[in-house]
Structure formats: C-alpha cells, structure tokens
Design a protein around this nucleic acid. Structure first.
Lengths: 390, 390
DNA sequence: TTGATCACTCAAGCGTGTTGAGTTAACCAC
DNA sequence: GTGGTTAACTCAACACGCTTGAGTGATCAA
C-alpha cells in the first residue's frame, strides 16, 4: 500500500498518497500529535486527516500513544509512529565489504550485518545481495512483507567522469546500471546515492538534522564527500555526482593541496605510514586518539585548517542552516576537529541571529552511511514527492 | 485564475492547478504540441489533458497553432503558448537605478524601463515602484489584469551576515522585510531572489537552459554571483543567500585572491583606474574590447584562469549539466572568456558522453537579471509547485 | 448546572481524473 | 476509387478523496 501505486492511479489516489506522506512525515517529526494539530499543519480538514489516520493505523504505520488535554475541550487522541509497522533496508557497498542495516520506521536498527567481499564486481555483489536477502528472509520472516525498499550507497562518481579510475571507485560498475542490478537482486524498490548524501539523510531521519531543510554534510569515508540537502531534497546533480568535494584545492603554508590529501582518513594513513601501521580503521583511530598520538594531533590541526576553507566554500555557495561533520571517524576526533576548524567571518553563515552552531557533529556514528542508505527510503515515506508517479 | 487559489481549495482543485502547470510547462517547453503527446508526457489521460487545454485556451494562455499529421491517423491539433495571454513583471533594484521589464508568456519583452535612484532606501524605492505601477497602468492598461506577479532582484546577501557592509549591498534593507515592501507597493504576488538565480531562470524560460534541470549560472554583476538550479528548482539556501561565490579563494601566481578581485567588472575597473577611466559600464567595455585594449586582454587572461578554478569547484560540488556565463558583460567578452577558461580534467563534468559544452554563454544579454526577475514568475506558471498552497 | 471550548464523527456533495465506447481524419494496399 | 488500419480526439458514466455542515463527547470556567 505504501510503497507502490498502480501505474496510472486516479488523481484522487495520487492526492491521497501525497497527503499520507505529509501526515506521516508530521507524525514522525513531532513524535506525538493529534488530528486537529495535524489538520492545521498539513492544511487539510480534520476529516481528511481522520481518514488518513484510520488508514495508517489500520496498516500499522502509526499507533495511538495517549491523550493530551490542553486546557479546555476534548483531549486530543495522540498518534505516533509505530516503529515495527514498516522497515527499510540499507546497503553500503565498499571495495572490501557489503554492509547492511535494517531500520524500523523510527530509524532504529533492527539488524545489521557485514559481509566480506573478495571481489566488488557486479556479479559478486549480486551474489552477496541474494544471500543477504535469504538471510533476512529466514532471520526476520515477518519483516519482508513490510519492507518499503532498499537504499544503496556506493562510492561515486557514477559513470565515466574525469574522476574515474581513482582508488576509491569500484571495478566493473562503470558500464553497469547499478539501480537495475540492485532492484533485481533484492526485489524491492531501490534508491541509489553516494555515501555523503545518505549520511545527510540519516541525520534528517534520526539525527541532528531533524527538522532542517537546508544543510550540508561533510562525510569522512575513505576520502571526503559532501552531502547537500536543499529545500528538504537531496542535491544529486545532473548525473548523481554532486558533492565531490575531495578535489577542492585548499591553501597550505607551502602552497595548495586537494582537501582529501589533508583531511581524509587516507591522508592520515599516509602520514602514519612511516610508523608501520597497517590500514587505519575506526578502532585504530580510537586507540591513537586515546593515546594522544602526536601525528594524529598534527593531522587534526592540518585537517581542521583545510576543513575551515571547505566550510567557507560550502557556506557561501549553499547558505546551509548548518554543516554536519561525521562518518568513519570516532566521535571524539570529530569533536576535536570541529572545535579547531577556523570559521571564517566573511561568510553568509556568520549571522548574529543563528540558533544552531555552524558546525555540528553527526549523530549516527560509524554506520552513518549504511543507516543513511535505509534513511533514503524512510525519507521518501515521510516526504511528499513531486513527480506524479512513484 | 492562474495565480491565486482560495486559501483552502479542494484537493481536486489543487491537483488541477498542479496539472495545469504541468501541461502549460510542456506546451512552453515544446513550442507546439498536441493533446495525445501531452498526455504521454504528463502521465495524464487524453481526456484530462483535453479538459485542461479547453480551460487554458478559454483563458487565453494557449492557442491553437496548427495541425500535424505524423503518418497515419487523425492529425493532432497543436497548441502553443499565447504570448499575450499573461505577463510577468521583473524588477531589478540597483544602488543607482530601478530597472523593470514586462515579459509576455513566451519571455518576450513587452516593455522595459529604467528609473534613476538617488537613494536606494526602502522608502525611496517604494515611491519609485508606485510610480512604475502607475506608468504600467497607463501605458499598458490591458496588461494589469493579466499580470501573474512580479519578480524582484536585489543584490544579496539578505539579512545581516558576515558579508554585509560591503559596497554592493543596499542601505536600509537589512532590517526590512523586502518581500512585504514589494508586495504592498506593487499589489501583486512577489518572488524575490538574487541576480544570479534570476539570471539562471531567465535562461531556463527563454535562453540556453531550456529543458535543463540541473545547471549553474555564473553571473557577472558588479561582483560575481552563482545561480544554482537543481532538479528544476532554484537552490536558495536556508536564508536565501546561496551563491555567494565572489569570496571563493583562487590561486594566482603570487598567492591567492578572492574570485571577485580577479573576475568581476569591479576588478577590471580597478585595473583601468590608473588610466583615468570613469565607471566601466557595458558600453565602455564594448568599446575597450573593440579597440583591443591591452589591459582588458590581460584582465581576460587573469579572470579566465580564476574562473577555471571556480568552475572546477562548481562542477565537482554540484555536477551540473552545464555552467552558463553571462550578465553585465558584452557577448564578445564572455565568448572570449569562455574560450580561455581552462577546464580541469579532474572533474565529474569531464565525461566522454557529454551532449552540451561544459561552458555556455547566457543568451539573455545585459538585461539578464531584470528579465530573470520576471522569469521567476513565469517559471512558477510552468512548473508544478510542491507546497499545497500558493 | 450552564455555557464555552475544543477534538472528533457522520453523511451529503463536489471537483477531477479515469475508463470504455464511439467518432473523425489521415495513410496504405488493392 | 474502396476498405482496412492507425491515431487523435470526444462523450458519457463512474470512482475517488476532499470539503462542508451538522452533530456528539469531554473538559474547563463561572
């Protein structure tokens, strides 16, 4: 009911689909809300809201959560999201692994898994996805019927571009229609995006960006990516490759470098290379941080300075309500980065009436991108779409 | 009928409003189109399209333009925009003048005017606007009833920001609700944006961006601004200040400078200052260009290099279909700039399957921003809006 | 107890789009 | 020419979901 409409539905049914999302989105955003308030917020009649609520409750997407008496009058019956009423699958494809998470309607994780990949070619990934689907079916049989769709996160850029051929992109996907591959392997509607945009959506559905419609997310993966949300919608670009901020030139004392040479996990790894460390993963970073490692300190200082310049560009080009930092970095390190990023005065974001900090730490932890993949789907369920068809 | 809906219209009426825009937008985009084709393009039944067409024709927004027989079958009755059926007013407020243009439904200029401003404070501007309205009423009495609204362009940034207090912004507007002021002075619905976004819309409605949904516009006013269109919608930012690209740092042989110090009309003016020129306006620029002025040549070289870096940033952050250059520069100079801008290889826009050049010259000439102001309104009439109310 | 306020329900009516069965006009084969 | 095919378009019923207006139940204040 919620996920798919027949190819040509009557206009009234499309309006209903729109209004359902509107109502569900408000219920999600407020946590608990009554019909009358929804009516005012959505610009619909109480009666219309009533009908929609009855439908949503019947389908198990929302549930009665209590009553609230505000002064006189009949106390409102409050409704909230029924977390178990539906779920969304998030899949993150990395060169070496497939990460997956199943999220309930509130964005809570029901199940997460990680499958090692020897090979990230489409055929190998397809095989793992099929296995994943079977695993889900047997581990959570009740869930499959309530699955709204699957979000997929892959390292960009998509298609052949001037940034192709770098270490980060996956082999064999250039010529492949990725959406098609995933749709066939998983058998549910697919939403495809890059890690940074997915992370941005994760924060919107569950984290620090709730209620925000214009913000940016600086995502630390292997490199650095930028997720953009404008007017509540992801900015994907003409070919889905928006947000490639890693190649932004930033000033250093001795010239200029690409942002990702200074402020990515890879860059830290290079700095530490001489010290005989292997791959610098999340846990290793935490350990270095706890030990007060000097090279890490140095990296933070350099990265913060570089990020300050990136934030300057982001703020002046997009005028976001806030810039969120997060991804595959321990919270403490992100916090320290944020505290050391020099915020330029000459920015449209430097306004006296700000209600939110210019930089915020993402709330969704190291799995942000995977959770965000699922959040792409949840966001759909909560936001009216523009197009007539879905 | 087209502009305003009653505060709470029935859902069916909102759907109609949406579908009307959809149909009208397609008619505008194709120039000439029959019902059946519209039906396929809009995802509506022929019958629905028929009803809408009857309504639009009745109101004079479209008109029959002929018949087309494509092979067998009954030849389609073609419809096109009826230019005189409605119009939009564009107003550009500059520190020293008020520019206005009245555009027909096809984006053709019916009337343009320029009023000198001694004073750009809100009260003075309001006075001029009232006079402008009277002038319109008497010069084009039939038009007032068909006025869809007025678009207004002002130099940003709006509100108090870290970029306030520069030479370009207007006095006395910081604390003013500009939209309110214009709505009262002109008595029609107002759409407010900065010059670059308006320019971008001008190109979408009439110029080189027709049919594009994701592109950027580098606008040369006094400084340099960036207009962004994503998914067919303007990217305004949280406070309407997106696109402030002038402060972007770019490399020079001897360090780094702000883009607008190298690639704006103001920067050229500074270069020429020693030569005893006054203000460098459009005509003066043309003359210098025709004379093959050496300083102009030098400026073009410097500006092109700076713009190359800006384009690099825009392409990688935004992945546009194309970047349009234009504004208050003679076409020849823009063309020469374009031919000399170094296009970086390391860009997501550097793709082998491009159908359009990475850089295009804007088509709307020196009045781009003023025309664009009116285009903001036309674009509304052609694009379905997301919000329920208008 | 009475009146006011507010959330919500019930039943009728309306605007739109869809469906399915015609109608008209072009092309093609003979 | 004639008949068949194709495609654009019209006409008349129908379905859907929202709105409207009247009515009910629960709470507070006088």
């Amino acid at each position: 009911m919620l996920s798919i409409l027949p190819p040509r539905s009557t206009s009234a049914e499309r309006a209903r689909s729109h209004n359902r999302r509107l109502v569900l989105g408000h219920v999600h955003a407020t946590g608990e809300i009554g019909r009358a308030e929804l009516s005012r917020a959505c610009g619909l009649t109480i009666q219309a809201v009533s009908n929609i609520i009855a439908e949503l409750e019947q389908e198990g997407l929302i549930r009665e959560t209590g009553r609230r008496s505000t002064g006189r009058g009949l106390p409102a019956t409050l409704y909230g999201i029924n977390p178990g009423g539906a779920c969304a699958l998030g899949v993150e494809v990395r060169p070496d692994a497939l990460l997956a998470a199943l999220l309930d309607l509130n964005g809570g994780a029901i199940f997460t898994t990680r499958r090692a990949l020897n090979d990230a070619h489409p055929t190998a990934v397809t095989q793992e996805l099929r296995a994943l689907r079977e695993e889900l079916k047997s581990a959570h049989p009740d869930v499959v019927s309530r699955l709204l769709g699957a979000g997929v996160v892959m390292p960009g850029p998509f298609g052949a571009t001037g940034l192709s051929g770098t270490a980060s992109d996956l082999p064999g996907w250039q010529e492949t229609d990725a959406r098609q591959v995933f749709a066939e392997a998983l058998g549910v509607p697919i939403d495809l995006d890059n890690d940074a945009n997915a992370a941005a959506m994760a924060e919107r559905v569950k984290g620090v960006a709730q209620g925000l419609n214009d913000y940016a997310y600086l995502y630390f993966g292997t490199g650095v990516g930028l997720g953009l949300v404008s007017g509540g919608r992801r900015v994907a670009g003409a070919f889905g490759n928006a947000g490639e901020i890693g190649h932004l030139r930033v000033q250093t004392p001795d010239g200029s470098r690409a942002l990702e040479e200074l402020a990515s996990r890879l860059s830290l790894q290079h700095r530490l290379a001489g010290r005989g460390h292997g791959t610098i993963n999340f846990d290793r970073l935490s350990a270095l941080d706890a030990a007060g490692d000097a090279i890490l300190e140095e990296w933070i200082a350099t990265a913060a300075s570089a990020l300050g310049q990136a934030v300057h560009v982001i703020e002046n080009l997009f005028d976001p309500e806030t810039v969120i930092l997060g991804g595959a970095l321990p919270e403490r390190i992100v916090d320290r980065l944020i505290s050391r990023v020099p915020l330029p005065d000459g920015s449209v974001s430097n306004r006296p009436d700000r209600v939110r900090a210019r930089l915020l730490r993402g709330d969704c932890g190291r799995l942000t991108a995977t959770l965000g993949a699922a959040a792409l789907i949840l966001d759909r369920a909560f936001s009216p779409q523009l197009g007539a068809l879905d």
